[in-house]
Amino acid sequence: MIIETVTSQLLELFPEYAQATEHVVEIVALEEQPSPEAKKGKKEQLVTRQNGLKNCSYDACGYHLDLQLSTGQLLAATALLFKNGFFLETITGVDWIKEKQLEAVYDFSRYDFDLCRVVVRTRVPRENPAIPTITGIYSGASWHERETHDFFGIKFQGHPHLIPLLLPEDADFHPLLKDFKA
């Protein structure tokens, strides 16, 4: 199964956990989904998630593996996914304004019937959002990264052509930031 192979390969990105994988892999079961924290209020949400790999229930959230990593590990993880035959579905961002962070979310999927959807996320500070580009591995990331740059102002370092794609050429605003006022 591809999930196991990818899991074991991705875990190598975290050498500190290499021995004790059970620290990293949590299983989020379907019935646990509306987790008790969620009901307690938004305060609990502010606890930032540690980098690591999460096994998710496909039925509940629509993907199998949820990987959060530092910007330094991004290229290695992407190259690994490319090697395993994943294609890039989309790249997007989320503005976590309370945590003063921007999150870039990469969705990967596969063409064959060995279903495995992987979500890769990486968080950067809001003041200086810079993430290495993955256009060297996935050429199709170019537009997605430009779009994310348009909307969130995340700078993709090394991107060959980081100009506005959907917004006007002279746009200097980032409409999907939560503090954006039209």
Partner: peptide, 25 residues
Amino acid sequence: LPPGDYYSTVEAGRGSFGIRIVSDG
């Protein structure tokens, strides 16, 4: 929606249409 991150795909006329909802409740 309960807080969380959801992804769902369908086959639209032109290919796979994915939708990601991030909810904070």
